[in-house]
Design a protein around this nucleic acid. Structure first.
Lengths: 234, 234
DNA sequence: TAGTGGTCTAGACCACCGC
DNA sequence: CGGTGGTCTAGACCACTAG
């Protein structure tokens, strides 16, 4: 192995993963690991801090370090950027803004976003098309109080999601994934049968507590899936 | 602020989040930050390493450190544990193993798991019921080569997923989320109309390269959604 | 090749908290 | 109270790579 802290980390991880050190098992103190691996305390500390940050172990002063209980399951899903995806696959990608308005939000949207009803937002409906096949329908709200420059933006080059991602850093996000049947309007837009199963991804983002945007993206169920790969340890 | 590295990190994060340092902006060198904050290089390095691990900045030797381009979007979804969820809500939860067999896997499963066709696995079909309403149908494969003790397990107290999570640590996982229409058999099991939109979550886990389990969980679309909250910065 | 980040040392002091 | 982890220092050498 190349680096000392890597060797130590791999070693400890292996013991935990193999079950040799089950949840609740006390891990050697830092000074013991120092002696074991013949290194300084900083090196040991870095390893253990990393493992703790990753949730593999729990550390408490005086009590020492123990193997953590397996955490609740999480799924990390990549949400594809259409333009990027298409470019990589050599596929033609286009998007079309079907609707654009600056409107006060309704009561339901107010509740979802935590903003007072009547707050005006930029409302956009966008259809994403690849090789002339509709791939997703996106309904988006953009908070003009947080992103005033969106008002004058024409979204000619980049779709709203990409444009926002490049411009506005976000600090918090909320995601909801659901399955719904397409109503007739959605079916027409996505060119599927009425009642066909669709995947709906809702995503709301905030920047330091200020609401930025909400996107509700509807994918035809037979054309899209969300995929994720995840390791509990970095 | 309490700790020096916290102050430094908050400071840099604030500059990035506010847009003062946009993507691509060169961050001061470590020795410059040392002087700015009057601390040692280790402290600065720890901060920048953390930020890099969180994807906020990109570091390259000789080239220096720059603010990272906003990463591709990710959704982190919590996958609920039925028993836990139900207990918290004071709802009755039960599960029923509908099918159990040790069988060689078919070609499709072999491809998904990366194992040779014909490998024998424990195959379980479980229905999850809350207050007498079916909430999910789970089809699971368990690799007996990795988890031999599953063979003798009756799954009387805990459903297979919970049992596995408690016993087998995992190092890698793959998730796929799709929307499908219920066929007649699934509709009957979940007590929905044939053709109703269902959310399907596929999850495959490995332990240090060895396949552990595959779960395909089908939720009625009108009864379930996956929810996640996420912050890009730890 | 020079300058950057990556790693590591051998100390130190402190905050916390279980005994 | 004493031992643990949390943080920090002032150095050092090394690996990588842009110029």
């Amino acid at each position: 192995m190349k680096h000392l802290h890597q060797r130590i980390r791999d070693d400890i991880e292996a013991r935990i993963m193999s079950g040799e050190w089950p949840p609740g098992h006390r891990i050697p103190f830092e000074h013991e690991l120092m002696a074991t691996y013949g290194c300084s305390r900083m090196t040991v500390n870095k390893v253990l801090s990393t493992l703790a940050a990753n949730g593999l172990i729990t550390r408490r002063r005086r009590a020492g370090t123990v193997v953590a209980e397996p955490s609740s399951q999480q799924a990390v899903l990549q949400i594809q950027d259409f333009a990027l995806e298409a470019a990589r696959a050599g596929i033609d990608y286009r998007f079309k803004i079907l609707h654009r308005a600056v409107e006060p939000i309704d009561a339901a949207a107010a509740q979802r976003t935590g903003l007072p009803a009547g707050t005006t937002m930029l409302c956009l409906s966008t259809l994403h098309v690849m090789d002339d096949v509709p791939q997703a329908f996106e309904q988006r709200l953009i908070n003009l109080a947080t992103v005033p420059e969106a008002d004058g933006e024409t979204f000619q080059d980049d779709p709203p999601g990409t444009w926002l991602l490049r411009r506005v850093p976000w600090t918090d996000a909320e995601h909801i994934v659901r399955a719904v049947s397409a109503d007739s309007a959605m079916a027409k837009r996505l060119r599927v049968q009425t009642g066909a199963a669709c995947l709906v991804l809702e995503r709301r983002t905030w920047q330091a507590g200020a609401f930025v945007t909400e996107a509700r993206i509807t994918y035809p169920g037979d054309r899209h899936q969300l995929v994720g790969r995840f390791s509990p340890v970095a």
